[in-house]
């Protein structure tokens, strides 16, 4: 066995990379929702068995497993209540952001679920319980994505 002192330079790490690139389909229910956003509409769906409204809509009710079909979709108004919010001053790599990103959980009127998106107001103007509405991107820039909504802003 060789002695430890003979060891010249210890090799500790091996550096490498994992190539990860994903393409996520929105799915059957997801596509119904996103195509709604593209039209500037909020589409939710309702499970009559559980009396529950999902936003974003789902293919199935997760409580009773009923399939929710296209005809179960209903348009809801662009208005909701801010349930909670946070703001972040750093990005995912830990770098300081010049302008903080504000993220809120919004309960849209007529739905039973929270909806996460950005808030566009200044921090000092934001309070839990305030009424908010979605601001849509200009129609030509919408592509059927959650970012077809720019963010939510306070309604005064």
């Amino acid at each position: 066995m060789e002695q430890k002192e003979n060891r010249k330079k210890e090799i500790i790490h091996f550096f490498g990379q994992l190539p990860v690139e994903s393409l996520y389909t929105a799915g059957i229910a997801g596509e119904r929702f996103l195509l709604g956003l593209k039209e500037g509409k909020f589409l939710a769906n309702y499970c009559p068995d559980c009396d529950f409204v999902f936003l974003p809509p789902k293919l199935y009710c997760e409580f009773c497993f009923r399939e929710l079909k296209e005809e179960d979709l209903k348009e809801i108004e662009n208005k909701g209540i801010l349930l909670s919010y946070t703001f972040t001053h750093i990005d995912t790599n830990g770098n300081r952001l010049e302008n903080p990103i504000i993220v809120g959980v919004i309960k849209m009127n007529g739905t039973d679920t929270g909806f996460v998106h950005k808030l566009l107001n200044k921090i000092e103007d934001i309070e839990i319980g305030m009424e908010v509405e979605a601001v849509f991107a200009p129609k030509e820039r919408r592509r059927g994505s959650i970012n077809d909504i720019v963010g939510f802003q306070r309604i005064d």
């Binding site: 389909t25 059957i28 293919l59 199935y60």
Partner: peptide, 19 residues
């Protein structure tokens, strides 16, 4: 080869069919 459904939706179709 490529499903339009999300993973959750595929799981649902199979689980519902089994039930």
């Amino acid at each position: 080869r490529r499903a339009k459904e999300t993973g959750k939706e595929l799981a649902y179709y199979a689980a519902k069919a089994a039930l």
